[in-house]
Design a protein around this nucleic acid. Structure first.
Lengths: 151, 151
DNA sequence: TAAAATTGGTTGCAAATGAAACGAAGTCAA
DNA sequence: TTGACTTCGTTTCATTTGCAACCAATTTTA
């Protein structure tokens, strides 16, 4: 006979729940983007970032969205190839790129944002009053996680 | 000049927050497992599942943890190679496998569970009173997500 | 100012991934 | 009982991924 196992409930384990939920949310969202606009999640994040302020570098975006720099680089290349943004060398520091949305890029963001918001609205509806507290807790986690790596 | 963009806050977008937090949690957790026990997240989930009840099939696990069946299959193969579980053919339905932890496998789970719980304890401490409501909201989402794919 | 170290972005590479094809086993229907 | 269909697990294949090597540009140090 084996020694008793400590009882452990995977279903109630926070990191597990996060992983399952995120996978589902991402898959759903990716479907919506892809079906209509042939866009990946990484590309979508780059687009949103550039829509905030024109002319960001790869490094900026990498830092802000926490993606690997090669991932950002590749997403940017695809978006450039598709005509959604332009790359230019920063004249002040020629290591840096200046990424800017094209008019088509802006239009794409305008098309995608309502899709994204609609999705979040559905989540809000499903969560009801729990939505606000969830949002708060996520903000706390985001802060903790970004601040230090103690988690 | 370009037409005004709808304002959209990526930082406050739920699916984005989930993705960032999950990536961070997984990376942290994977480090802990890997450093001490050379175990991936997929393998860890298989182990936990088998610790609940001996003799589950690949299909069972796939269903319960929501991982791709090839991913489960590969994790199981690695665990078998490492001596943490055994595969046997189910005599009642010879398509099915009967997966069972070996004594080493049980010991590994006994070693890993405290690690996992310690991690969750840290999260609980960081979240304080928000932990309970977060947990509730995650449960709601898990249920919604598993029930239908409407999200 | 020259050499060393750092930074930004790209690319090569090996590992991980998911979808689909597959063979073996089982079920169902005629 | 045969043939069509489904299910289970493995494997193949093309794609994605992250790490590290790399080049060019810049900054720091001596």
């Amino acid at each position: 006979m084996t020694q008793a196992l400590p009882d452990f409930d995977l279903e109630q384990y926070l990191p597990y729940q996060f992983a399952v939920i995120t996978a589902q949310l991402s898959a759903n969202l990716a479907n919506r983007y892809r079906d209509k606009y042939a866009i990946t999640v990484a590309e979508w994040r780059v687009l949103v970032n550039l829509s905030y302020s024109d002319s960001r570098s790869i490094r900026d975006i990498q830092w802000r969205v926490g993606m690997d720099k090669s991932k950002v680089s590749r997403a940017v290349s695809r978006l450039e190839a598709a005509g959604h943004l332009t790359k230019a060398v920063n004249p002040n520091d020629r290591r840096l790129l200046q990424l800017s949305l094209t008019e088509e890029g802006y239009q794409l963001v305008r098309d995608l944002v309502p899709l994204a918001e609609d999705f979040q609205d559905k989540l809000r509806a499903q969560l009801g009053p729990q939505f606000a507290s969830l949002s708060q807790a996520l903000n706390t986690l985001m802060k903790e996680i970004l601040d230090d790596n103690s988690v």
